[in-house]
Measured scan of single mutants.
Amino acid sequence: MEVRTIKVFTTVDNINLHTQVVDMSMTYGQQFGPTYLDGADVTKIKPHNSHEGKTFYVLPNDDTLRVEAFEYYHTTDPSFLGRYMSALNHTKKWKYPQVNGLTSIKWADNNCYLATALLTLQQIELKFNPPALQDAYYRARAGEAANFCALILAYCNKTVGELGDVRETMSYLFQHANLDSCKRVLNVVCKTCGQQQTTLKGVEAVMYMGTLSYEQFKKGVQIPCTCGKQATKYLVQQESPFVMMSAPPAQYELKHGTFTCASEYTGNYQCGHYKHITSKETLYCIDGALLTKSSEYKGPITDVFYKENSYTTTIK
């Protein structure tokens, strides 16, 4: 009895394709271990004539594949690729409408935090270190965002349907971005203890939790000093293409032309909904596939993004 075979390709990165001759009487799992086709788990399936010449994702289970996976995804987590594939199996079914010149995501599976993050990423200057993220990001900007969303979920250790947080998501993504040249110098002034300067680099240099107003941050924000008295913390120097200011959701007025974009969060910790506000020729609110415009805006804002380049204080 002759062994019926077909020729397929296996890959971990969709760049390096490895030619395989597979036995049609055995499952993919018996031949390769966990195997995925377009995100779908085909591990328990036997090869079919229609699979001839198709590319299958496999887990990096030998040295060659491990090197290829690390170079593309910059992670050695053995569960990463499987999590990416199972997320992709959902995100490829989502709709990605162009809204006001940006790629958004039609609401499904509690994905409003991903839509808000995706919209924000198209408006701030950011370059990702893992080629996987950078490639998928370019495709997302062009309207094909399924891979990018699935990668975000995998890097953030999230599953489809789980509630997510924009600030946490951005923080994970910033860790995989090139923020080497970003720098922030802060000064804390206390009447009792004097003053202390701190220099922050990388992710810490672009994120701040405690106030939404970048102007206020430049002037000074009140913080408790270690001595128990009130101290003032203010920005001395900022070198970065953008800054992200966050605070627990509270009524906040966004003035046209003073910011790049913002995240609105309605609801409580267990259950809520994100919308995205962007400042173009007027203010726009993007909620999944829905767009509304207004000249002014007041609502429960939790993150505001500002364009920056270089700032030095005039406070002496």
Rank of each mutant, 00 (worst) to 15 (best):
R4Q: 12
T5M: 11
I6C: 13
V8M: 14
F9E: 10
V12P: 05
D13C: 02
N14F: 01
N14R: 14
I15F: 13
N16Y: 06
N16W: 08
N16M: 15
L17G: 07
T19S: 12
T19A: 14
V22E: 01
D23M: 11
D23W: 10
D23K: 12
M24K: 13
M24D: 11
S25C: 12
M26S: 15
G33N: 08
G33P: 09
P34F: 12
T35L: 07
T35W: 13
L37H: 13
L37R: 12
L37N: 12
D38H: 12
G39E: 11
G39Y: 10
A40R: 11
A40K: 13
D41I: 10
K44L: 13
K44S: 11
I45K: 14
H48M: 12
S50D: 14
K54G: 12
K54R: 13
F56M: 12
Y57N: 08
V58C: 12
L59G: 07
P60T: 05
N61P: 09
D63L: 10
D63C: 06
T64V: 11
A69V: 05
A69I: 07
F70S: 08
E71F: 04
Y72C: 08
Y72K: 11
H74D: 05
T75E: 02
D77F: 04
P78R: 11
S79K: 15
F80Q: 04
G82L: 14
R83H: 04
R83T: 02
M85I: 09
M85Q: 09
H90Q: 13
H90T: 11
T91Q: 11
K92N: 10
K93N: 12
K93D: 07
K93V: 05
W94G: 05
Y96I: 03
P97C: 01
P97K: 10
V99K: 14
N100H: 11
N100Q: 14
G101D: 08
G101W: 01
G101F: 00
L102W: 15
L102R: 03
K106P: 08
A108W: 09
A108K: 09
A108C: 14
D109G: 01
D109N: 02
N110S: 04
Y113A: 02
Y113T: 00
L114W: 00
A117S: 07
A117Q: 10
L118R: 04
L118I: 08
L118Q: 02
L118E: 02
T120I: 14
L121G: 02
Q122D: 07
Q122N: 06
Q123P: 02
L126T: 04
L126N: 03
K127Q: 15
N129M: 09
P131S: 02
A136S: 09
A136K: 04
Y137K: 04
Y138T: 13
R139Q: 11
R139T: 10
R139N: 10
A142P: 02
G143A: 05
E144K: 10
E144I: 05
A146H: 05
N147T: 10
L151E: 08
L151P: 03
A154H: 00
A154P: 04
N157H: 09
K158C: 05
K158Q: 02
G161N: 06
G161H: 03
E162Q: 07
L163E: 10
D165S: 15
E168L: 15
E168K: 15
M170P: 05
S171Y: 15
S171Q: 06
S171M: 13
Y172A: 11
Y172C: 13
F174G: 02
Q175R: 11
Q175H: 13
Q175T: 09
H176D: 02
H176C: 02
N178R: 09
N178D: 13
D180Y: 00
S181A: 13
S181G: 14
C182K: 03
C182R: 03
K183F: 10
R184Y: 02
L186R: 08
L186I: 14
N187H: 08
V188A: 06
C190S: 01
K191Q: 10
K191G: 11
T192R: 12
T192I: 10
Q195R: 06
Q196P: 00
Q197F: 07
T198V: 14
T198E: 13
T198R: 11
K201P: 04
K201L: 09
K201I: 04
K201A: 09
G202M: 06
G202L: 06
V203K: 13
V203T: 09
A205H: 01
M209A: 15
M209R: 15
M209G: 13
G210A: 05
T211Y: 01
T211S: 06
T211D: 05
L212D: 07
S213K: 00
Y214H: 07
Q216R: 06
K218I: 03
K218A: 01
K218R: 04
K218M: 04
K219F: 03
K219P: 02
K219N: 11
G220C: 02
G220I: 00
G220Q: 02
G220F: 00
G220D: 04
V221E: 04
V221L: 12
I223A: 13
P224L: 12
C225L: 04
C225K: 01
G228D: 03
G228F: 02
A231N: 01
T232Q: 07
K233S: 12
L235A: 04
V236S: 03
Q237C: 11
Q238H: 04
S240H: 12
S240L: 01
P241G: 09
P241M: 02
F242C: 06
F242I: 05
M244F: 03
M244D: 01
M245Q: 00
M245G: 01
M245S: 02
S246D: 01
S246L: 05
A250C: 07
E253W: 14
G257R: 05
F259C: 01
F259H: 03
C261W: 01
A262D: 02
E264N: 08
G267H: 15
Y269V: 15
Q270A: 11
K275P: 10
H276W: 13
T278H: 07
S279I: 00
K280D: 10
T282W: 07
T282F: 04
D287Q: 03
A289E: 15
L290E: 14
L290A: 14
T292Y: 09
K293A: 12
K293E: 12
S294K: 07
S294M: 15
S294T: 12
E296N: 14
G299Y: 05
P300F: 14
I301N: 02
I301E: 06
D303A: 08
F305A: 00
K307A: 14
K307I: 09
N309F: 08
S310M: 14
T312C: 08
T313H: 14
I315M: 15
K316N: 15
